[in-house]
Design a protein around this nucleic acid. Structure first.
Lengths: 327, 327
DNA sequence: TTGTATGCGTTATCAC
DNA sequence: GTGATAACGCATACAA
């Protein structure tokens, strides 16, 4: 069992007062160089690390960030969170922060958890994922003066707080362009029902690109909840049209997988999120730069916490089309 | 901004001393009932929650557990960790603990992280996943008297510490039995190279079951690293045999997917882990009871932490075969 | 530039 | 059964 080494141990070893050690740690420039070296050496040989609990009592900062972990929803898109979490933890550690997990059952429950976490662990900030229209969580956090960043922009008021997001429209635009360049003219879109910011954005990218190339998107899009059967259903529906599409741009890998099944592999299909499933079955898919998104979230949050008065900042990242055998 | 409510606020409100409030919290039985009620009421109306940092300074306990998050490895099996993490976080919260994440690059780096986390955050315990033969991490933790549980047993010495694991052999046994019952006699096994505890165990389940039914497994198994191409390769190899298998039991969904491709859907195939991919493509797969495994890990750890001198305990959970269209 | 004193919120020890 | 006091490790104001 390693002995507890406190600031006092270090002070004794370096033959200075505890205060001097603290100064070396927090305001190195005010300590005479020679003294500083002696202290730093003592810190190194003793393997001293500041006790967070004690530091927190004084400063009110815990160096702790929280993020919610959700049960893998529809089974496919869950891996996105996985990769995001890893990036978050990695970037946070580099900035001197740690990531704490919590679960919640709905927005109301999540807010209660905010309160708990803040009261008992004094969390420094939150990273929220999957924001919706008029997200109550962001209002609560803002009201209580708690720093946070969302991964996903607030569609109703993009300027309201800091966020990092991926340019969804650009993703489907890339996919659509690729299909057009490989000769397709009738390209269908399979997405979610209108009203979700992300879904509408992905539809936009397809629509705009079609128009750019003088192709008429009218009647070529379908919307359904996320899932493989739903994707198949939409594809079948589109395929019964007189002038049926020869390719599908889909808003998710789940929908794309369904389309792939329905088309029996005879149509070009692109998905979204570049999930492991896509890699597995050779589905061309739009890949989000998850590690970078995570790093930017941490950036925004820590700069804010470390006093840089940046105000609210928005970061929009470009996705990349991973071309495989399906398109 | 909510006012800070400390034990002192509660004491004033209930017109008792701070110590009495502390007693109500930590040793309710020694406080007179009427006083206790008054204090509890004050706690409730004030919404008081103990400050963990202060508590930790006194008790040396942080109510924090740590678990490593890895980058999704081969792209498919990563979702297992996701589901496990969610279960862990949920169960921990119920037991009054929180889960902290960390990343590490190799065992050596992980041990350095243990040291850091322990020194600065005073972690109460660790949950380790994916233990290997002679895992140095477990030795380090044991040496330093740090409580931990592994998800996955230590194959070289099952009694050395507490663990929770899934009966891998039983999983492949179930899969093999299912294939035999549906008429197959020549059943191949595609797994990993001998030497990994988990892989050997999964191979065993197949082998034993074959013998139980008087079927000869000789020459019917192949081993390769995990991955879809590797699975396809092994399957093709087996299919060139004179008396080729009509079905494959695979040690992972990745390998199974490869086998599925190689066989062109004409052979029965079972996977392992019941990943989203399996659900997506209709692959029959062995499902691990992840939420329960997580809950048991937390159980073992917290009971140990809360003083129940349970010694080392081993928990072996039974998996379930999810039958789909592939077998 | 360095040292001394104080308090953060909690719990443990000990009187009352 | 209840209340005063000290101590956990650190950082800040202030004195030297």
């Amino acid at each position: 069992m390693a002995e507890k080494v406190t600031i006092g141990t270090v002070a004794a070893r370096a033959r200075v007062s505890r205060q001097t050690v603290s100064n070396v740690l927090n305001s190195p420039h005010i300590v005479r160089e020679e003294t500083r070296h002696r202290v730093e050496e003592a810190i190194a040989t003793l393997g001293y690390r500041a006790n967070q609990a004690a530091r927190q009592m004084r400063t009110g900062r815990s160096q702790l960030l929280a993020v919610r972990i959700e049960p893998t929803r529809d089974g496919i898109n869950g891996s996105v969170l996985d990769r995001f979490l890893h990036g978050l933890t990695f970037a946070a550690a580099a900035a001197g922060y740690r990531v704490m997990l919590y679960t919640a059952d709905g927005d109301g429950d999540e807010i209660k958890t905010f309160d708990d976490l803040l009261a008992s662990y004094d969390l420094d900030g939150f990273v929220l994922t999957g924001t919706d229209h008029g997200d109550v969580r962001t209002f609560w956090l803002a009201e209580h003066g708690v720093p946070f960043v969302t991964f996903g922009r607030p569609w109703d008021a993009p300027e309201r707080h800091s966020w990092v997001d991926v340019d969804n429209a650009d993703g489907t635009a890339q996919a659509t362009r690729r299909l057009i360049e490989t000769g397709h003219r009738r390209i269908g879109f399979i997405g979610w029902p209108a009203g979700s910011g992300v879904g509408d954005d992905r539809r936009d990218g397809w629509q705009r690109t079609m128009k750019t190339y003088d192709l008429d998107p009218t009647g070529l899009d379908r919307g359904a909840d996320d899932g493989i059967p739903q994707g198949a259903e939409c594809a079948r529906d589109l395929l019964t049209m007189p002038d049926a599409p020869t390719a599908f741009v889909c808003a998710s890998d789940s929908l794309a997988l369904g389309a792939l099944q329905a088309a029996g592999g005879r149509k070009a299909v692109t998905g979204f999120d570049d999930t492991p499933v896509a890699q597995a079955v050779g589905l061309t898919s739009v890949s989000q730069p998850l590690p970078e998104a995570a790093a930017r979230c941490i950036d925004l949050l820590t700069h804010h916490l470390d006093g840089d008065p940046v105000g609210t900042t928005q970061v929009l990242l470009q996705p990349a089309l991973m071309v495989r055998t399906s398109a």
